[in-house]
Design a protein around this nucleic acid. Structure first.
Lengths: 217, 217
DNA sequence: GTCTATAAGCTGATAGAC
DNA sequence: GTCTATCAGCTTATAGAC
């Protein structure tokens, strides 16, 4: 409830270093708190406490709560899209798809907050993300669908609906972040462990490859 | 911004009827608003406006905002679980699985708000749903996993991890509610139409059945 | 750059007239 | 049962001393 520790590690640092360091720490803590409580449920005071700075200091670096939130989600979209362009028309699906599934699930493990904030955004109308979705993400989406269609054309996989296949890949892999709590509760665990993520990767790869008629390596 | 219409259709109704009718309308409108804005983003005033009643009237029927929210999510869990017990050990997967997938996606179409509120709950810690998840849902989950294992035992499907298969079914079918906005944006549409849901059902059924090695009918 | 104190506005909840 | 008026508390954001 109360700030326990106020840290002042400003030794050695120039002003620019302090600024950079503070910005980084604020963004990191804000990501955490926004993911846990959602935009409206998050108070600037809670972020300040997580960082270990007074409230006014947060608003010194980011003029408004909304500005801080936008800064956070702009980082996230890049991260979220980062593995998609690894799938290209000349890569073979029996290699590219397992790699994509594995990368996305590992991302759900390493950066669950990115996925969660993103999911909450979409769930509640994507007010701050709509433009980015229509621009950057739509581009990536169309390109990846064309890759799938090319794979079908070459008879490397069964005729499938490329758009819905991509929706399937997204929802199944993100589930390990967005529904991670539900999954761990149903498995009777406190947290998902490495073994759970590996089993998820294995099942999704198995079902997806065989389900799309892709011959294994 | 302002209440446009104040409706008073209390003609003919007894007091009990009025009460029942108001309770129903409040719960319905509240579900809508909670789904759109989340728990913290929802104000009692917004619900009141949606129903067409003064704010104090909402709080007359439901003592607190939290109480109203709990009433809403308790309805949802029942709805959310409603199709799972249609899969039994003696039903054959080539019939039961397509039916389940179809039912769940149709539910995402007919009752997207149920799925969205549920998703937001889990996303932000399941504070109001945790007990129900550990009790009722866990029971259903374990039973359904046993059904899957029985199917594997009878060699009606490939050896698969039953737990993660169920997570896959949930996330893919719910996506048409939870990520519906994202999907429609990427497809360049205002809303998903019947054709989109049918294509989703077709792809998921195709990939899941073949991916699990289930012989078609 | 840092931080305390405070202003300004919103929100859940209640009192009390009808 | 219905509804207006209002209170008490919280939250964002700013002013201004250091």
């Amino acid at each position: 409830m109360k700030k326990v520790i106020k840290k002042k590690p400003k030794s050695r640092g120039s002003l620019a270093d302090i600024r950079k360091d503070n910005l980084y720490q604020i963004l990191t803590s804000a990501e955490q708190v926004f993911a846990e409580r959602g935009y409206r449920g998050t108070t600037v005071a809670a972020i300040a406490e997580a960082v270990g700075l007074p409230k006014a200091n947060i608003l010194y670096y980011f003029k408004t709560k909304e500005g801080l939130y936008k800064a956070v989600i702009n980082q996230l979209l890049k991260l979220w899209m980062s593995h998609m362009n690894e799938m290209s028309a000349d890569s073979h699906p029996n290699e590219a798809l397992p790699k994509y599934i594995s990368n996305k699930i590992r991302q759900s493990k390493e950066h669950p907050n990115a996925s969660r904030i993103f999911a909450a955004e979409v769930l509640h109308g994507a007010h701050y993300l709509r433009d980015s979705l229509q621009a950057e993400l739509k581009d990536q989406f169309d390109q990846t669908c064309q890759v799938f269609d090319a794979w079908v054309e070459k008879e490397w996989m069964d005729p499938i609906n490329s758009e819905h296949l991509l929706f399937m890949l997204w929802s199944t892999t993100q589930a390990y972040a967005d529904h991670g709590l539900q999954i761990s509760i149903l498995m009777g665990k406190e947290h998902l462990d490495e073994d759970d993520f590996e089993k998820g990767i294995k099942l999704l790869t198995q079902v997806t490859l065989k389900g799309c008629g892709i011959k294994p390596l």
